[in-house]
Design a protein around this nucleic acid. Structure first.
Lengths: 340, 340
DNA sequence: CATTGGCACTCCTGTGCGGGGAGTGCTACC
DNA sequence: GGTAGCACTCCCCGCACAGGAGTGCCAATG
């Protein structure tokens, strides 16, 4: 029994099942793929694959369906990259080119992925900690409130309101503003604490409370993991005809609304060595996503690490090669756009 | 035949149908509500109600179900306000109190509505045009790009990038910034064009291009209807058990992703005279929402007009009184929070 | 004249049954 | 190892049938 053919059979099963959404039998397999052997032979291979846990049958005398393990093998070794069609490439380019600001870019990107993959798209905003600071603005609001606005090189804007115990002195605020921008601009947010450390000493004791409060807000803002934002699109694709029934999509929607779940997955996948990371079924480690797969990749590369991730979530029986190449293509364009 | 009782019957039908999700027959009606008459009498009333288009039967020999028109009558005349339980009130207060900034407030509010109504929640960001300007910031980015940041009194922050044909002169930028803030701060954005009109004259001819560009960006930003943002939560509630089947929720999700549809509805409903506006079924004028109802109300009152709207979308057979009071309660708290 | 009890009628729903078909596993054979 | 044949399993589909809920109508009544 040839080992190679057995893998061919697995690949054929995955492809057919993805295409037809129905368990695939030995006869259909030899008819649709020129394997050069008889159904009986395929049946032997299938028995071996089932023994190995790569495929399973929903019930006796039904065709076979890939298991999580089967998809995993397919993704790791059997799938070939599927290049996008040139109209698709062009569409990506023109669609993203015309964006106005960061919100717009993110919005367009997420819709684009949803449209290309016909699945749920996820785009993570550029991480605060990995961005560089462009500008800090302090805006007094009334006598005892100060609005702190951060602007990063990726175009992200964050704001915080600060409540003070003493009245504001506009000249102190102005000095602090210019100091902050001198010592902080251009730096990674993760390096900020060091840069801000000595700042306090430059001010009169009476004003140090203000300075410390502002510095604390800055540090707190960039430390907050929770400040990571993700945007979704294409959730309507979950309800496509022929998909699983209604009770299956409820838990998925719940999981997607729990941004915590998505953020955990995204950060875990950032550790993967592969450029395009894939989590299949139970690998997601989350109940609501046991029957879905998650394909992500980083964007906004800057000498190694990426600034955040984008991805697509779909059924176990998704078009892995197509999804992977779509996600990667959009990530490349995104990286290029953000570099400007 | 008493007209009053006929309305009682309609109310009972709506309430029972909402509670049981099943067509309600004449016998069940007399058993569950003490109407004091026999099923036969009720049947006569039902025939009249059906004649009037308020109820319908899915098929011969089934119970009756309210029509859009029936729900409308129920909402307009038959429902009584259902006050929230005091734990609910307290939960709203404490949940919203702890918000940090505008994004946080909006996020909490939308989740809160979703949780209270067990439906899809919608929160619209404070309208730019109806807000007052608190501060304008100009941040040079490189030599020929200028980041324009608007901060409103509702805490909303908007940004635009401006591309210039000449190099920036920092001193001109500084003068423009202070001028802008003097003449624009505290004003309604809708009044801005007037205030900005004469600004150009105060600058040297060489700098007027810059001034005009910035003014143009400001005007454009606040004119853009499309800049209205809405946030959703609770979409998983669409897939609750016992709800309509899977093909019914697809179109709804699509409609919800089309923010345009929501924005149109929200602005239409702002015209309604009632404080809490309701759109039932086909009244939404949108295919995807023909089997849903939309309950909204304004928040952030300022002498008449509200600053934006919040609402909840659910099935035709929703708990209208409960939804209406929940939405109204959250709006009140929101208004109070934003006033600070 | 509104109300009521009775009754025939309609139509949905659940269930059991049988045939057809797809697919498998096994065995004997090349 | 690969192949052909064959018996077996089990799903799916259509169908008939009984049960039941609910209605509409009619005649009787206060």
């Amino acid at each position: 029994m040839s080992e190679d053919r057995r893998l061919d059979v697995l690949r054929a099963i995955v492809e057919d099942y993805v295409a037809t959404k129905e368990p695939v039998g030995s006869r259909a397999l030899v008819e649709r793929h020129s394997l050069g052997v008889s159904p009986a032979t395929i049946r032997n291979d299938m028995a071996a694959l089932e023994e190995g846990g790569y495929i399973a049958q929903p019930h006796t005398s039904a065709g076979r369906v890939p298991t999580d393990k089967g998809y995993r093998l397919f993704v790791d070794q059997l799938s070939t990259v599927k290049p996008l069609s040139s109209p698709e490439r062009r569409a990506i380019g023109t669609f993203l080119e015309n964006a106005q600001d960061l919100d717009d870019v993110v919005d367009r990107a997420v819709r684009l992925i949803a449209q290309l993959t016909h699945q749920v798209a996820v785009v993570q905003y550029p991480s605060l900690r990995r961005s560089a600071l462009r500008h800090v603005e302090l805006v007094p609001v009334g006598a005892r409130h100060l609005l702190v606005v951060l602007i990063t090189d990726t175009g992200r804007v964050e704001q915080r309101t600060l409540e003070l115990v003493t009245d504001l002195d506009e000249s102190v605020v102005a000095r602090l503003r210019s100091r902050l921008n001198v010592s902080a601009a251009g730096r990674r947010l993760s390096e900020l604490p060091v840069a801000l450390g000595e700042l306090t000493d430059a001010f009169a004791p009476a004003d140090q409370a203000l300075v410390n409060a502002v510095v604390a807000v800055l540090e707190e803002t960039l430390a907050q993991e929770s400040e990571e934002r993700v945007v979704l699109a294409g959730t309507a694709n979950l309800a496509r005809v022929g998909s699983t029934d209604v009770r299956a999509i409820g838990p998925v929607l719940e999981a997607l609304e729990e941004q915590v779940v998505l953020l955990r997955l995204l950060s875990e996948m950032a550790e993967d060595s592969a450029t395009v990371a894939v989590r299949i079924g139970r690998e997601t480690q989350h109940d609501g996503l046991f029957e879905t797969s998650f394909v992500t990749t980083g964007y906004g590369d800057e000498g190694g690490g990426s600034v955040a991730r984008i991805g697509s979530i779909g059924p176990l029986r998704m078009d892995y090669p197509g999804t992977m190449s779509a996600v990667r293509a959009v990530a490349r364009y995104l990286t290029r756009i953000l570099a400007q």
